[in-house]
Design a protein around this nucleic acid. Sequence first.
DNA 1: AAGGGGGTTTGAAATGTTTCATACGCCGTG
DNA 2: CACGGCGTATGAAACATTTCAAACCCCCTT
Lengths: 344, 344
Amino acid sequence: MVNGRTPSVKDVARSAGVSLGTVSNVMNRPEVVSPATRERVERAMAELGFVRNESARQLRAGTSRTLAYVMLDGTNPFFHDVAQGIELAAEDADLSLFICNSNSRAEREEVHVDRLMQQRVQGILITPVNPEAAYLAEIARRGIPVVIVDRVGAGGLFCSVAVDDVLGGRIAVEHLAEQGHTRVAVVGGPESIGQVRERVQGARQIWAELGLPPDDLIHLPTAALTVAEGRSAGERLAGIPARRRPTAAFCANDLLALGLLQQTIGAGLRVPEELAIVGFDDIEFAAAAAVPLTSVRQPRQELGRAAAQLVLDEATNPDHEHQQLTFVPELVARASTVVRPRAY
Amino acid sequence: MVNGRTPSVKDVARSAGVSLGTVSNVMNRPEVVSPATRERVERAMAELGFVRNESARQLRAGTSRTLAYVMLDGTNPFFHDVAQGIELAAEDADLSLFICNSNSRAEREEVHVDRLMQQRVQGILITPVNPEAAYLAEIARRGIPVVIVDRVGAGGLFCSVAVDDVLGGRIAVEHLAEQGHTRVAVVGGPESIGQVRERVQGARQIWAELGLPPDDLIHLPTAALTVAEGRSAGERLAGIPARRRPTAAFCANDLLALGLLQQTIGAGLRVPEELAIVGFDDIEFAAAAAVPLTSVRQPRQELGRAAAQLVLDEATNPDHEHQQLTFVPELVARASTVVRPRAY
DNA sequence: AAGGGGGTTTGAAATGTTTCATACGCCGTG
DNA sequence: CACGGCGTATGAAACATTTCAAACCCCCTT
């Protein structure tokens, strides 16, 4: 430490008796400097407690060493698993990952993205409140690598990585139909969330294809995809007289399903005998629920990892082409829908 | 956009017909520049799509606008709630929050912290793998504001914010004793985690004070604080013949408790009649479990917010003094310990 | 008409790196 | 002995901003 100020390359150079350039070389191309001087410089660094100033490095070099992920909802473990996948890919590329959380608020999201642009991050991964937002198109147009995660972006302007949500809705409801259910609730909302729209749409599709009467697929809207909303939907469901009550529910995500499960069990319904439940995402807590939850699995980490790879390709490969990756979801059957499921 | 390059203040200045300094003034002290020029400059910025380069700003100004939180375990929702509290405080102070995740690996933690130092963040909040780690003391010694979250740091070198874990262990076991339990399992590990040691210690303390025989407080070690480990502990517990089996379990965190709950219910034990369960942290999923979980609540968001305030104080207040804040945990009784708990 | 003063604007220095052309030192070769 | 070449080291320029003393302009006072 040099009189309070944190030491700079200049201080290191002086203390080691070499020039600025040499110190820089020690950090960036150690092979060109002779072992003896390198040794001397490294000792000086250690002695002074030198820490390279990343701002200055980045300013001059013009390239940053961070990726960023703006997640939609920090209370949903799903997004943390995605983030974990991104983190692993970032680690491989020797990059740092900057995680932000918009909490489903569009204006907060934009503040975060703005800050990230100012930081000149290498690329932005984002699960946006609204993938059609004009400002997103704008930054992509400028050449900042942007990858939409868990949604598909508008008009091929960006890469995106998502699961086929329509298909997910289909397999969930198909599974219920296979178990003999002919009156099914579809729980989810608000419609402004694209994932919800598509999952519901998939449910309707297969229902029609199976030739079941549209009125027996009952939509139970919710205000958000949270445990609390799931509980509230559960109340409404349990309140329906037994003869007219759906015998199964497909929830737009696992948080809803968990809330619904808790509430309906509390109300005395047996799961799955009186009410079968399917969730979506297959978060870790789904398997850990007291009645393990059947769910539509998204390859969460894989989603994140693939997104990171796309953003890196866009950042480094001059003839990168935007692509929309779609993963195939998979049903994981557990005790909440089948009386004796295959082993966990 | 100026021929591919992203535009700089210089470009804005030229386009608006003013000097560099004026553009800077528009951004940093708008009150000194006349409305007419300000207007002109702002228009030029919008036209060119100018985005301030934060690296250059920070290099020159010497101050960054970010706080960072290095969390211990991204799979535990507890830490995300803490992060949320930090985020709110950061938002108030108009700072960005950089969230990293060490996943309980000491070397990854150190890489993260190193990067953060290079970025010259205003302060580092951290739930460290080991609060006694030498490198932490080292950076604190250099004057970087560091706050330990959910642990207390060594030798008053840093501020810290934590809950009284010993007390938490006491009230958990006291509650079980009040319900008449006289043979109790304490589930948790590894001992290398400070939180575990102290919670277990609290349990032993009160057990002794209540005059109960030490052998009837049975320690069930686990390799980590995860749902999977909770399940495995549950297997062992369920395997004990009913006459000698503990009638209650205190788990070192909610993840363990949730796994234990699931496993033991699956094995046919009734909760709480045959096995009462208490967790620790009171994460959101605790209340949402099919048998809502009694837990020792930590004020999670409050913890984060307080930590952020401490770090900001250290960063800005010249006569800051380190303090160790301790919050008092609180028992939240739910159905996993009492047959008819007070309203949820 | 000179002086003064307030409100704006300017220009240059400074921040800590990296980069790159150049210089240096040394050795072996012709 | 001069020369070329190689391996190292150097110094200055460049990066995009902020800051601050100085300059400028205009108007009011005396």
